[in-house]
Simulated scan of single mutants.
Amino acid sequence: MQIVQLFLEKSKNKINKGVGSTNVDSKFKSCCANSMYRITETIINDKESHERLFDELSSRIADIMAACLSNLSQVIAMKCHTQVAEPAH
C-alpha cells in the first residue's frame, strides 16, 4: 500500500504541473496522471482490495492494455494511408 500511496502523491504533483500549461506534452502527462490518481485513489479506498491488491492491479493493468491495443490496427491503417510515398533517388 505504500507504493500505491507513493503513486497517488506523484500523480497529484504531475496533475498540478500540467494545470494551466499550454505545452501539449504537459497536458498529456497531466491527463495520464489524472487517470493514475483516480485508479490509486480507488485502490486505497476499497478496503477489500487490500488483501487481493496484486490481483486487482493485474486485472486493471490488463484492462487498460486491452483498451489501448483494441484500436492499434486502426491507428496503423491510418498511419499507412496518410504517409506520403517519396520516390527513391
Rank of each mutant, 00 (worst) to 15 (best):
I64L: 12
P87Q: 10
K27E: 14
N71A: 03
Q74T: 09
S30L: 09
R52W: 03
D55Q: 08
A33N: 06
K47P: 00
Q83A: 05
K17W: 03
E9S: 10
V84I: 08
I76T: 08
T42H: 12
K29F: 15
I64A: 13
Y37A: 08
H81I: 04
E56V: 14
D55H: 06
E48Q: 09
H81A: 08
S21K: 10
K10L: 15
I39N: 03
K29W: 09
V75G: 00
E51M: 01
V19W: 07
M78H: 04
K47W: 03
V24W: 09
N16V: 11
A85E: 14
F54G: 01
S30P: 05
N13C: 02
D55M: 02
S70M: 04
V84M: 06
C31E: 15
A77R: 10
M1C: 06
M1P: 07
F28E: 15
I39G: 00
I76W: 01
K27Y: 04
D25M: 06
A67C: 00
S11M: 09
I43D: 03
C32H: 08
F54N: 05
D46F: 05
C80K: 12
K17P: 01
S49P: 00
I15P: 01
T22N: 12
M78Y: 05
T82H: 07
D63R: 09
C80N: 12
T40P: 03
A66Q: 11
E48M: 08
H89I: 05
E51F: 03
L69H: 06
L57V: 13
E41A: 03
Y37W: 14
C68A: 14
A66G: 06
L72N: 06
H81E: 12
V4L: 05
D46H: 08
Y37M: 07
D25P: 00
K12I: 14
G20D: 07
D25L: 08
K12T: 12
I43N: 02
E41K: 06
A67K: 07
Q5T: 14
S70L: 06
A77K: 10
K79I: 10
